[in-house]
């Protein structure tokens, strides 16, 4: 399969295959992304996150349908956790998006979180680039907002929508710690349920504490399954985007996320090369043994690793 030609000609198989190659850390994929990098930057990227059961997939589904009515092409990357024990995963977000499946202007991809090392945000970041090159106008990244790695992923987005739902009890507390801050727009889903008002108030109170005056994230009440207020939510997302553009914050955010991306790739490459090197020389194990004996300390060990790496690269 000629992936490049396919990707540029709107062939979904090519697009899908390239994302797989990225996930599998194939060298060919990196080369292709290098080549086509200049073509990125046309898509708006929207992160959708929130606690389990908040209805994130339904929200994504409805927003995507709204955008399709406006003739926009939509890419969706839905991330679900990989089992740390078996390496397997059940990726079930498509269930809520069944009727988008066959829409030629929509591309949906499910990803497992797979290994550690920020590998996922790297892969998700690259997948966003692929969909961008593929010509998508909007790209959604949907993850469960429970852990740092998920937070890292949605940070790639131009706008992060935090989907909340009444009646989560303690979960809201858990979400608050360090994760609520990344929300640019808050959606209170299932807002016809008891406790919706309280949830909205709790969010407002939190926003009172956390932010200065420049931009205050709006809180939108929605009922995603009934398509209720989805247009309002989209409006809030657009407003945020506009604010970011006008205030110059967009550039700052882009700059920051690029910086993070470069450092991530760098870290990843360093660790990868050390691991590769160690496969032949056992250098890491040797250093571990030395540190165990107290004949060396971990700080010196790390420096020595770095030296080893440099010596092979020069």
């Amino acid at each position: 399969m000629d992936i490049k030609a396919g990707l540029l000609n709107g062939d979904k198989r090519a697009c899908a295959r390239l994302i797989s190659l990225i996930e599998n850390e194939d060298a060919q994929a990196v080369e292709l992304l290098k080549e086509l990098y200049s073509m990125t930057g046309n898509a708006r990227v929207i992160g959708i996150t929130g606690p389990p059961g908040a209805g994130k997939s339904t929200v994504t589904d409805k927003l995507a349908k709204l955008l399709r009515k406006r003739n926009k092409k939509v890419g969706i990357i839905a991330v679900d956790p990989t089992s740390p024990f078996t390496g397997g995963a059940i990726l079930g977000d498509r269930v809520r998006m069944s009727d988008l499946n066959t829409d030629p202007g929509v591309f949906i991809r499910s990803m497992g979180t797979r290994g550690a090392l920020g590998g996922l945000s790297k892969a998700a970041n690259a997948a966003v680039k692929v969909l961008d090159i593929f010509g998508m106008d909007y790209i959604f990244i949907e993850t469960v907002g429970v852990g740092q790695s998920e937070v890292d992923i949605v940070k790639l987005a131009d706008t992060v929508v935090m989907v909340m739902v009444p009646g989560l009890g303690d979960d809201i507390q858990a979400i608050k710690a360090g994760i609520m801050e990344i929300g640019d727009v808050f959606a209170v889903n299932k807002s016809d349920r008891d406790g919706a008002e309280r949830t909205a108030t709790e969010i407002e109170v939190m926003l009172d504490f956390n932010r200065g005056a420049a931009y205050r994230p709006p809180v939108v009440n929605i009922i995603a399954k009934d398509n209720n207020n989805i247009d309002k939510l989209m409006e809030a997302i657009d407003d945020h985007y506009e604010y970011m553009q006008n205030s110059g914050n967009y550039k700052i955010r882009k700059r920051n996320s690029l910086k993070t991306e470069i450092i991530d790739i760098f870290k990843y490459n360093v660790v990868k090369s050390i691991e590769q090197k160690s496969e032949n020389t056992n250098i890491i194990d040797q250093l571990v043994e030395l540190a165990l004996d107290k004949s060396i300390d971990p700080y010196t060990a790390a420096l020595r690793l770095l030296k080893e790496l440099r010596s092979t690269e020069s």
Binding site: T86, G87, G88, A89, I90, G92, R94, V95, S98
Partner: peptide
């Protein structure tokens, strides 16, 4: 299949 280490995309 998941427990056998596969990534399962479930459609409903």
């Amino acid at each position: 299949l998941r427990d056998a280490g596969m990534e399962v995309i479930y459609t409903g």
